[in-house]
Design a protein around this nucleic acid. Structure first.
Length: 601
RNA sequence: GCCCUCGUAGCUCAGGGGAUAGAGCACCCGCCUCCUAAGCGGGGGGUCGUUGGUUCGAAUCCAACCGGGGGCACCA
């Protein structure tokens, strides 16, 4: 696999530092950074000069001399500098400011990187975590309920992380922790039993029909629950019979679960995310283990009875009254809450799924809950030292008024409606840009563009912050949106299609590069480093930033460096190689975010 | 009250020790006989919430304060 230029430079500069300073520099970080003043700059001389109490500028001059043979450094020929064996990628070094090293790379080195990545299916990026298993819990919709913007964030971010982690070599186990249990099911089942006509007339129906009747069921059942005390009593009894395994109750419950899954599948299909039925593990799955968890924790003294509830307490977790606030494993009425379920899920994920890492892509409002659950699981040994558990939290979705995102009428926004809105919006733009497309083709293209825009908007802002959901902005399709990247990718394929017959993307390392070509090659080289950060921090927005910047650099190249009409066959092939690699990089990057990149737009 | 989180251009956001703080939107001015103008170039616009501290160097790290949002016993 290709080593990135920044890594090669780090090794070279470290070698030069060590040659000049000896062991004092052996573990020093050369602090290689992209630079406005050269291809890269090394900032590592300054702290090192401080450490050895030397003059930073003088030290920088000696390191520069060691990096590049005196011949290339007319100003600082220094016979006393020790020779250093380096990779040879550096063409020139300049000492600037208080002791920065401005590093300019040889054109041939840039070309060499392009050549190496171009021929590789992974574009020269090596997987770093082969053999490790990540369990990732995301999406988490509730049975018999609409999905809304909160689910959108979890689903989109989770799906991107799945793709990114898999690309990094991990085995990824998706877990869609469905809300399929709770007292509200007593009410729903009872209503359904009493009103069989609430079901849709046709057996075969869409996900949209499924959620629409379930939503009506929920609404009507709640209304009757509040209006009719007799029904409320029967609903409460129904909870008990359901938990007792009553067949009629279970059948109704299973029917609702199946209907909901039909709807989820519809939504996931529209969103083009990889969640499937087999990934769904509802809360109810853990029911058989809850009593055992409670008994185990109580018996080992990790949890104690307090006001009848089985509780785990923590240092520094207090309520407004100054009293400690516990994690409640078992309620005083004997029932189990979601803390018990989450603990059982950890056991399952560690014990059965063999997780090395467990991720929870959940709203930041759950931060305290997860802190307590993880801490409890650590104490109980359910979460051993070798297993990492991370609450991959994200901020709330707000409307343009800065308040929680709602419709004008104050309702939560239905996910399907929101996605349809984005696609409808895109249809208009697509039709305007491509008048010759028929309605069906325009619709298909608008789906790719519109859904991509929604996902990109969500993924491109830093995860932990709240974010303002502005459909108009995200589907405006200008500027920093997914369509900019898709457009760059489509232009690339247009170029590749128009190459004269017989022209292949081929690197000619002996050609001098123009500034726009250099910038493009340099940026292409940073894909691996970008992905490494994204995976380490679970921050997909760093990838969107990289891709957007890459597409901007490509636009600059596009304006300044004709490919099809290049001045010579060699230049044409060389540029075609850059274009091809840029296209592949955009395509891969978007794919890892869950966004499609068609060859034509 | 305690804990978490966020304050960067008119708006939405990047940047999380390194040189003159960036992008998009909006606004103004230019660019299609030329590989897709869903694009490109230029312009105006900032006490990086405040005050201290650490450092050769702070938007970035630390502390305090101010302001927004969130969470804090049997709902998930």
């Amino acid at each position: 696999m290709a080593k990135a230029l920044s890594e090669i430079l780090a090794e070279d500069v470290r070698a030069a530092l060590t040659a000049v300073l000896g062991d004092a520099a052996r573990d020093a970080d050369p602090l290689i950074r992209p630079s406005d003043h050269a291809d890269f700059q090394a900032n590592g001389v300054l702290p090192l000069a401080k450490a050895v109490k030397g003059n930073p500028r003088e030290l920088a001059i000696r390191v520069a001399a060691a990096l590049v043979p005196a011949a290339a450094q007319p100003g600082s020929a220094d016979a006393g500098s020790p020779a250093v064996s380096t990779s040879g990628v550096i063409a020139a070094v300049e000492v600037a400011g208080p002791g920065f090293l401005n590093l300019t790379l040889a054109d041939a080195a840039l070309a060499g990187q392009v050549a190496e990545r171009l021929g590789d299916a992974r574009l020269g990026v090596s997987p770093s975590t082969i053999g490790q298993t990540t369990v990732i819990d995301y999406s988490q919709p509730n049975i018999a309920k609409e999905m809304h913007v909160g689910h959108l964030r979890s689903t989109v971010i989770g799906d991107a992380l799945v793709r990114l982690l898999e690309f990094d070599g991990r085995t990824v186990v998706r877990q869609n922790h469905l809300g399929d249990w709770g007292t509200q099911f007593g009410m729903l089942i009872q209503y359904l039993v009493e009103h069989p006509e609430a079901r849709p007339a046709q057996a075969e129906h869409s996900g949209e029909v499924a959620i629409s009747w379930l939503t009506a069921l929920y609404r009507d059942a709640r209304a009757e629950f509040e209006a009719d005390g007799g029904f409320a009593d029967r609903a409460r009894k129904r909870v008990v019979t359901l938990q007792g395994g009553d067949e009629e109750s279970l059948a109704a419950w299973e029917e609702m679960v199946a209907e909901s899954k039909r709807y989820f599948e519809d939504v996931y299909g529209r969103l083009d995310v990889r969640l499937v039925d087999a990934d769904a593990v509802g809360e109810s799955f853990y029911n058989p283990y809850l009593a055992d968890i409670a008994a185990d924790l109580e018996q080992r003294g990790i949890a104690v009875r307090s006001d009848g509830a089985l509780c785990v307490f923590f240092d520094g977790v207090k309520g407004p009254d100054g009293e400690p606030v516990p994690l409640i494993v078992q309620k005083s009425d004997g029932g189990f809450g979601y803390a018990a379920t989450d603990l059982a899920a950890i056991r399952h994920r560690v014990g059965t799924l063999k997780a090395d890492q467990i991720l929870y892509v959940v709203d930041s409002r759950q931060a305290l809950h997860f802190r307590m659950v993880f801490e409890t699981a650590r104490r109980a040994g359910y979460l051993p030292d070798g297993v990492e558990a991370v609450h991959v939290q994200f901020g709330s979705v707000l409307g343009t008024d800065g308040k929680p995102f709602k419709t004008r009428a104050g309702q939560t926004v239905r996910l399907i409606e929101l996605l349809d809105g984005a696609v409808d919006h895109a249809v208009a733009t697509v039709a305007e840009k491509n008048p010759d497309l028929d309605a069906e083709q325009a619709r298909a293209e608008a789906r790719v563009v519109g859904i991509g825009a929604v996902k990109y908007a969500d993924l491109s802002t830093s995860r932990t912050k709240d974010y303002i959901f502005d459909l108009d902005r995200m589907v405006s399709l200008t500027g920093n949106t997914s369509v900019y990247l898709q457009y760059a990718h489509a232009r690339i394929h247009s170029i590749l299609r128009k190459l004269p017959v017989g022209t292949e993307p081929r690197v000619h390392a002996d050609l001098a590069l123009e500034p726009a070509e250099r910038r493009l090659a340099l940026q292409l080289d940073e894909l691996g480093a970008t992905l490494a950060t994204v995976v380490a921090e679970f921050e997909p927005h760093r990838l969107t930033t990289y891709l957007y910047s890459l597409a901007q650099t490509f636009s600059d190249f596009y304006e300044n460096c004709p490919v099809v009409k290049a001045p010579s066959a060699e230049v044409r092939e060389n540029r075609a190689a850059l274009v091809r690699l840029t296209g592949d990089t955009l395509k891969l990057g978007l794919e890892l975010l869950g966004i499609s990149a068609p060859d034509q737009l």
